[in-house]
Write a protein that binds this DNA or RNA. Structure first.
Length: 1000
RNA sequence: GGGCGGUUAGCUCAGCUGGUUAGAGCGCCUGCCUUACAAGCAGGAGGUCGCAGGUUCGAACCCUGCACUGCCCACCA
């Protein structure tokens, strides 16, 4: 019997069970639609969301948990609101990170990957992945994420690898991929190029070394003069091929056309003139090392300087570095400085604060390095990606950012974008589908839509081809996810004819409208119903692309979000709409909305980091407080644009909330059981919808039903705007503040199983019980996206273990049916208008106000909590609605029961000598013998008087103001007048009471 | 060097397009083991909304300046 609930809620007792249940029952599976079939609900009502794929190497941290909580709340909410919801999970192969992980393993075994060889190493990584790669998703399952596990992907899956290859191949044949020798950011530890984004800059206290380069005379002899250059990386001087000065720099005008002798290397290098040189910085003379600095590289190109690479891939000096060969760059730096000093060529050392680039992955200092890499010419893709975010002529945006300010950040970056270095010198990843010819040394890239690797060189026909050894940047494959997970490119029939026929990158692409000229393959209408290889994928794509929303952190805005937008817009443009029409930009975006969430920090607002040791492990917290409490904590603090300072004190509070809900359920089930004993059964078929109340229902029933509807309206509205905090707080307030604190306390009075033989009592009890359960059941549904475990457990118990659907997650989300439509409400006879004093909200607030006043007065008089006492209620001239509310017998009884008083009314004023309490519209007096603490009383009254005087003065000042009276809206003026009158009454009474206190 | 945020109760944060006397949770104080819940109930204290001007009948909210603080971007050796 599920009604036997323990006294305190123990999350650990139920969570594993439900987590497994949701997965096992495949409750959230959303299989690909059958081609041509009519599905319900209609395809238009989809809610599709991709999980930002965690790294396979990853362990769940608070950021993941926030991200997943938000996505789960939205997905569950949309699903319950009738949308066909699909949340798609997967993991990222995370090239560098994973390779590092396995290399570390090998090191422990005393091996290196080079010893293993590429093939064996990659197999080893796969093995690792099979073993440990699922950890993070297992954690996710445990947290109750309502994803479709049948669709789980991995970015190195065969299916997704096909997409990656096709994307590269198309871009290549569109002329948007190029290969060349450039300066790239090189990580000497990872021994690979990394993109600009993967370099993180740290401010670093370094030095600026000033080195004297001897000036040579006409015959190549030292003149005895020196040109002093300044550098932060002296070791690069081994590769210097010039020194640059500003052409207008008067100090050096006499050196124009002269040469220098490069110290330590004894190489003659020219002095070149370039306006790029800043005369103010350093000495105004810059050593130029084209092979080791991006600026110098550009300078070198302009002046046709040789490029001398002096370091190997591990940042050790190579043979070109003379006697320093073999030294690590920092060791070499020391020796070079020392040698220069000995030769008196070191003019000075200055402290210098500058930014040093580090590898995002391993934090090694990045070395700009000349190497052959693959790049994407990004501008054409960026143009579309910009158009997708900027408002069109009608002011519509194909992609909307929340918070909106990220739109600016995004556009700013996109408008200043650089070509993307996509090659990585790793073994783990998608190997670049390009083949080098041993004969003509040209490159062969397969044609689009071909599966076979090329057998012979496309240029000379030679069969001596070897595939490129570099792999693609991890973000290349994750950038493709929105299209690749839905089957692209295998979704266009007769694909042999499409592909490289036209080049979208070519001039003529209209990036403003996004309507490219590469629509070579406008499929026929009814495409999805045809039987062909990709029909199933195509139906999937048609149903779910574009996705609805992306929820992610700003840290991967450029890495991932921007790349998905570029790729999504680029590769989906030529896929016709399901009806065969061309795909507009708004339908080629990978997602329609982006919600960017904040960072989770520790309770002191510090960034969580391993080195600081302040990382909060979500799994630990979950074990301690329960998943629901942690989820609720995150949700309640997730206000767009604000970082979350995660404080377990909050979580403790929400564990208490879970316990509160649990105990409310215990109370309800206890009464259900009592009712059953006297033959009252509640019809469960009435559950699952929104409860209604009728004119003859008692106040608390009419009120709580109205509150429920109002709460539903507010929660739905908040979720619509990603206001998780508002939504969570609203539900919290409703459940605890309204349902438990007031409704349950009052409904107890109407659950009278003792006098059940009386027909009226029987009916009233049955009705009260029905409303109680219905509201509770609806509240569970409303709460379930936030607290899926607890609500699932209790919801099943409400149905005594045999609910209609298999899960609360498959029921419908509470919708407001009152506040959204007053007219209809009145026509069906429900008395729930909020415009009159008959409104349950106003009636209830009066009752609550009276009860609170009575309780406060009791307390002040020192009445023991148990005792019932007599009390007097004095109505005054502002209190007509109070009087009319309380004259209702049921309301009077209510006040008496909840305040433990026996109430009498009076239309006189209380005697100044008695101790009473003044409220707006009435005074209360509790009849009880006690000695008044005159000092405390005087203090309280004095404080009240000051407050009233201040308020009254402010109100009167405004009411005397002509401008206010003429310009402010009538209701504001009226409200202020009323309030001023009330304050005046309260002030007078307080003054009188103070006057009446005994003096001493 | 550019750009974008933030500053409201002891703490963490709300406060929607300016409108009556600024809210919540936690913490704090007081009293209660009242048979759903002490992870609870009841009552209470606590804020000149960072500072200085301005606009307005009216400003936490709009404008200007300042202070402090956080983040992002940037090739200055």
């Amino acid at each position: 019997m599920p009604h036997d609930l323990p006294k305190a809620y123990d999350p650990t007792a139920i969570e594993d069970h439900w987590a497994e249940y949701w997965v096992r029952e495949k409750l959230f599976a959303q299989p690909a639609p059958t081609p041509g079939a009519q599905d319900q609900p209609p395809l238009g009502d989809t809610f599709v969301i991709l999980l930002p794929p965690p790294n396979v190497t990853g362990r769940l941290h608070m950021g993941h948990m926030l991200n997943q909580t938000e996505m789960d709340i939205l997905t569950r909410w949309r699903r319950m609101s009738g949308r066909r919801a699909l949340w798609l999970p997967g993991t990222d192969h995370a090239g560098i990170a994973t390779q590092m992980m396995v290399e570390r393993q090998l090191t422990e075994e005393g091996k290196t990957r080079q010893q293993l060889g590429r093939e064996a190493f990659v197999e080893r990584v796969w093995e690792w992945k099979r073993h440990y790669g699922g950890a993070i998703l297992e954690q996710m399952k445990r947290l109750g994420a309502s994803v479709d596990w049948d669709r789980e992907y991995f970015t190195m899956d065969e299916r997704l690898s096909v997409s990656v290859r096709e994307a590269f191949v198309r871009l290549y044949h569109q002329g948007l991929v190029y290969r060349g020798v450039y300066i790239v950011n090189w990580c000497p530890r990872c021994q690979t190029a990394i993109s600009d984004l993967e370099v993180v800059y740290d401010e670093h206290k370094g030095h600026l070394w000033e080195i004297r380069y001897p000036v040579l005379g006409a015959v190549g002899k030292d003149t005895g003069e020196f040109l002093t250059v300044a550098t932060t990386r002296p070791e690069t001087m081994l590769g210097d091929t010039a020194v640059a000065i500003h052409p207008e720099d008067e100090r050096y005008r006499h050196l124009h056309g002269r040469k220098l002798r490069l110290p330590l290397m004894n190489r003659e290098i020219p002095i070149i003139l370039d306006e790029w040189v800043s005369r103010e910085f350093g000495t105004g003379a810059v050593k130029v090392t084209p092979a080791h600095d991006p600026n110098d590289f550009a300078l070198g190109e302009r002046h046709h300087l040789p490029q001398i690479n002096v370091m190997d891939e591990t940042a050790h000096i190579n043979a070109a570095g003379g006697k320093y060969a073999g030294l690590d760059r920092f060791v070499a730096r020391k020796e070079i400085i020392q040698d220069l000093e000995e030769r008196k060529l070191l003019a000075g050392i200055k402290d210098h604060i500058h930014n040093v680039g580090h590898c995002d992955r391993c934090k090694t200092v990045v070395e700009p390095r000349l190497s052959t890499q693959w790049f994407i010419k990004i501008q054409p893709l960026a143009d579309k990606a910009i158009a997708a975010v900027k408002p069109d002529v009608n002011g519509n945006k194909a992609i909307r950012f929340t918070p909106e300010m990220y739109e600016k950040t995004y556009l700013n970056w996109m408008e200043n974008i650089h070509d993307w270095c996509i090659s990585r010198q790793l073994w783990w990843g998608h190997r670049i589908p390009a083949w080098h010819c041993a004969k003509c040394h040209k490159i062969t890239v397969p044609q689009p839509n071909t599966k076979e690797d090329p057998k012979s060189c496309a240029h000379c026909g030679s069969g001596e081809l070897t595939q490129e050894t570099d792999v693609l940047d991890t973000w290349f494959s994750s950038g493709l996810l929105p299209v690749s997970v839905f089957g692209w490119p295998n979704i266009i029939p007769d694909t042999k004819t499409s592909g490289n026929r036209t080049s979208p990158g070519a001039p003529g692409l209209d990036s403003e409208t996004g309507e490219g000229h590469h629509g070579t393959n406008l499929g026929a209408p009814g495409l999805a119903s045809e039987t062909w290889e990709g029909a199933k994928d195509r139906a999937d794509f048609d149903a779910f692309y574009p996705t609805s929303l992306l929820v992610t952190g700003f840290d991967i805005l450029f890495f991932w979000v921007a790349r998905m937008i570029m790729f999504g817009c680029w590769f989906s443009t030529d896929i016709p709409m399901p009806d065969g029409s061309p795909r507009p930009l708004a339908e080629s975006v990978p997602f329609r909305e982006v919600y960017i969430h904040a960072l989770v920090r520790d309770a002191n607002r510090e960034k969580m980091s391993k080195t600081k040791g302040n990382v909060i492990d979500p799994i630990e917290i979950v074990k301690k407080y329960g998943t629901d409490a942690v989820r609720f904590t995150l949700a309640s603090m997730a206000s767009p644009g604000t970082d979350i300072a995660f404080n377990v004190a909050r979580t403790e509070g929400y564990r208490a909330f879970a316990n509160k809900i649990w105990n409310a359920a215990r109370f309800i089930f206890m009464n259900v059981d009592k009712a059953a004993e006297v033959g009252i059964k509640v019809d469960p078929t009435a559950f699952g919808s929104m409860p209604t109340a009728y004119a003859d229902d008692p106040l608390e029933a009419r009120w709580i039903v109205a509150e429920l509807h109002a709460t539903a309206a507010k929660v739905n509205g908040s979720l619509e705007n990603y206001r998780f905090d508002d939504a969570a707080n609203t539900i919290y307030q409703f459940f605890w503040g309204s349902f438990c604190d007031w409704y349950i306390e009052i409904v107890k009075l109407h659950l009278d199983f003792g006098a059940i033989s009386d027909d009226l009592v029987y009916k009233a009890t049955r009705r009260a019980l029905a409303t109680l359960i219905q509201v509770f059941e609806a509240a569970l549904r409303m709460l379930s996206p936030f607290m899926p475990f607890l609500t699932e457990e209790l919801w099943h118990a409400v149905y005594d273990g045999s609910p209609p659907p298999k899960s609360v997650a498959l029921t419908s989300y509470p919708q407001d049916e009152i506040y959204s439509n007053d007219a209809e409400v009145q026509s069906i006879g429900v008395i729930l208008s909020r415009h009159t004093y008959e409104s349950p909200a106003i009636e209830m607030s009066i009752v609550q106000n009276v009860i609170t006043a009575l309780r406060a007065q009791r307390k002040e008089m020192g009445v023991p909590e148990r005792d019932s006492v007599r009390a007097l209620l004095y109505f005054n001239q502002n209190g007509s609605h109070v009087a009319s509310t309380l004259r209702t017998n049921s309301n009077k009884k209510l006040c008496e029961a909840l305040a433990k008083v026996e109430l009498s009314f009076s239309y006189e004023s209380p005697q100044p000598s008695t101790k009473f309490r003044s409220e707006v519209g009435y005074d209360v007096e509790v009849i009880y013998e006690r000695t008044i603490d005159v000092t405390a009383e005087r203090e309280r009254l004095t404080k009240d008087i000051a407050k009233y005087e201040k308020g009254l003065a402010a109100a009167e000042r405004q009411l005397d103001n002509e401008g206010f009276l003429s310009k402010a809206p009538a209701q504001v003026v009226e409200g202020l007048k009323k309030q001023a009158a009330e304050t005046r009454t309260l002030l007078e009474k307080a003054r009188a009471a103070l006057e009446a206190l005994p003096k001493n």
